[in-house]
């Protein structure tokens, strides 16, 4: 019953029905959160997986065949995103440096107070976030490109650009908070 309803919503979404798509994604995100919660303890991580899954579903929506059930299609993407997320976390865990120590590794060996300028401070913080996030924030804030322009330039969807930038801001905030705390 649920599968048939979601399948019908996706069929309409593929034809461009925005309302059906919003309804579908709202239902999907609840299912994804439920699935991810069983495997991840941190609510932030559950939300990250949910968002990544939404973007994957969006970019792969043309591959859904309404003649087939919807839920296996959706859960295959969820499982893949979850696996991908856990792998990335593992890799990050192996390489990650706590914020306080990371700041010590910033070139020039100067403290934030000594450097004294907000731009220098941000330049250093930008070095500590992921390359993808840094590039998008630089294009948005330093080069003044629009989301649409970045999307065209990088081949990444507009929604993905927004989410990556948002994640970058979040990482910057965390770093700054860590550094201030460490002072």
């Amino acid at each position: 019953m649920l599968d048939r309803r979601l399948s019908e919503l996706m069929r309409r979404a593929q034809d461009g029905d925005r309302l059906a798509y919003e309804t579908l994604l709202t239902e999907v995100i609840a299912l994804v959160r439920g699935f991810a919660r069983k495997r991840l303890r941190n609510p932030d991580q559950v939300e990250d997986v949910a968002q990544e899954t939404l973007l994957s579903i969006h970019s792969h929506r043309h591959t859904y065949d309404p003649a087939r059930p919807f839920l296996p299609w959706m859960y295959a993407i969820v499982r893949h995103r979850l696996f991908d997320f856990v792998e990335k976390q593992k890799r990050r865990g192996e390489n990650e440096v706590p914020a306080e120590i990371a700041w010590e590794q910033v070139p020039a060996g100067e403290t934030i107070v000594e450097r004294g300028t907000t731009s220098g401070f941000l330049q250093q913080a930008l070095l500590l976030i992921s390359i993808k996030q840094r590039e998008i924030i630089q294009m948005l804030k330093l080069e003044g490109l629009s989301v649409a322009e970045i999307s065209r330039k990088t081949g990444i969807s507009e929604s993905s650009v927004k989410v990556t930038a948002h994640r970058g801001y979040k990482a910057l905030r965390k770093l700054i908070a860590g550094a201030v705390h460490g002072e």
Partner: peptide, 24 residues
């Protein structure tokens, strides 16, 4: 950007897509 906001953003930017033909 929260998940609900992403849902709204994706729905707002939605364009029709050409379905891929069946696997077989």
């Amino acid at each position: 950007m929260g998940s609900e906001e992403i849902v709204r953003s994706l729905a707002r930017d939605l364009t029709p897509v050409r379905r891929l033909r069946g696997i077989e």
